[in-house]
């Protein structure tokens, strides 16, 4: 079975500092795949590399087409939605305007209106705050907004960068539950980057462990959980 996303020999650097040294991984259509690793391992950079937000070498295939080297705006149009590190909220715009921007490249007006309702169904809090300036939302609400903005694209693939960062465990659990539901009911594949390995492995079907810019371990989440080294270094028991 062909993978939705296939990455081979991905290299990336910031200026003279090399961050990725040849990452290989694949993501099955319909799956949730997690990239795990410590701070500075290169997880965020990998996500950024997929969207051409950093200069890269290597090959990235998405949905049968080669996408490395294409402009970020064009990659988005293929159906990859990226929830960036730091959430990327348009802080001076309202919640609703943020969501409208998520659907910027779509031309099917009528179904956009339905999607608003669908999203407000997942996150009723956003509906309450839809005319509020997004910068005034709480951290958890902004994370919900960031995920929602990405979903407004009706993506085939959702890239999630540290959705748990800086949030209370209760809110993280809520967001993760919704992610699972979206994956199941809407067939959105998800590539998740997380430091919180335990939570990520509970959500994901597959996982890759990245250390200093290389994939050092891969397998199903069950297998990875059982790995002795992972358990000690990343799961902490």
């Amino acid at each position: 079975m062909a993978a939705l996303l296939q990455v081979a020999g991905l290299h990336a650097a910031y200026g003279l500092t090399r961050v990725l040294h040849g990452i290989d991984f694949a993501l099955e259509e319909g799956s949730i795949t997690a990239l795990l690793g410590a701070n500075g391992a290169g997880k965020t950079t990998t996500l950024r590399a997929l969207c051409s937000m950093v200069k890269v070498e290597g090959e990235v295939h998405f949905d049968g087409a080669r996408i490395d080297g294409r402009a970020t705006e064009d990659i988005v149009r293929l159906g990859i939605a990226h929830v960036p590190d730091g959430r990327g909220t348009f802080t001076h715009l309202t919640t609703e305007e943020n969501l409208r921007l998520g659907a910027y490249v779509r031309r099917d007006k009528s179904s956009i209106a339905q999607d608003f309702e669908r999203i407000y169904g997942y996150f009723p809090r956003l509906k309450e705050r839809r005319h509020q300036q997004a910068g005034t939302l709480s951290g958890g609400e902004q994370q919900m907004l960031a995920v929602s903005r990405a979903l407004m694209l009706r993506p085939k693939l959702l890239l999630l960068d540290e959705p748990s960062f800086g949030l209370a465990p209760l809110i993280v659990r809520e967001i993760f539950a919704i992610m699972r539901e979206i994956n199941k009911t809407e067939k959105v594949s998800i590539l998740l980057v997380e430091q919180n390995a335990a939570m990520a492995l509970d959500l994901a079907d597959h996982a890759y462990l990245i250390e200093t810019g290389r994939v050092v371990l891969s397998g199903t989440s069950e297998d990875i959980k059982k790995d002795e080294a992972v358990r000690r270094s990343y799961l902490g028991y």
Binding site: T72, V76, H82, P84, G88, T89, F90, L93, L101, Y104
Partner: peptide, 14 residues
Amino acid sequence: AAAQNPESSRLVGI
């Protein structure tokens, strides 16, 4: 949006 946050704007396809 583009004036405010160019990076996020690119990520929604602007």
